[in-house]
Design a protein around this nucleic acid. Sequence first.
DNA 1: TACTGATCATTC
DNA 2: GAATGATCAGTA
Length: 228
Amino acid sequence: MKTLTPLQNESELLQRCRALAGIELQEIASFYHQTIPKSLHQAKGFVGQLIEQALGALSANQPEPDFPHLGIELKTLPLNANGLPRETTYVCTAPYTIQACTEQWENSRVQKKLARVLWVPFEADPSIPLPKRRIGNALLWSPDKATAQILREDWEELSAMLQLGQSALLSAKIGRYLQLRPKAAHSRILSPAVNDLNELIQTNPKGFYLRTVLTQKILAEHYCQSFV
DNA sequence: TACTGATCATTC
DNA sequence: GAATGATCAGTA
């Protein structure tokens, strides 16, 4: 692992990924003088943030790609003992306001986030101690035509429901690749929305997530057998 | 055991 | 409070 210099282009980013491939979390953590938490229970974003740091991602906590200059979004992907995605992948928050709901797919936050993604798989089998879990081979990905079409259809269906104030009908079961689920510190948090009569109401904030069926498909199409 | 709804840490 | 990084955990 080398000291970070600003990233100039994609090949430098991929080169940095190759340096991380196969190494254990403890190696990265000790390089950055970070302590690995005993569990992820109270540090759910730890692995993602550690890898952001190791790859030199810039825009922390901003609604922008992790590498704004390159237009690339970084996503870590936890894999279970069978090498399959263990969790859904958070994309972005879902807009409830009239203003945000008028956005079209082409300029939606979901489309922008998913246009170019750097997937970094890592071992997340609970039987492996956190420090010993290894980083896998990264994949720079853009959705193919068929995938993009399904994402668009999901997004349009879900956005229409948000826009029409059908939040009561929204469920995490809607959507083939995307789904809408709560996204907040806890369930008491409320944000403004409209109901089907266009009246202002308060509801739990939601976010767009990618189902594991899609991330699993991405892995299957781009890797032969081993992701690590 | 997979999935949905709930929750944790941090930053601005 | 709302955005980021996500995983936890009860239940169907």
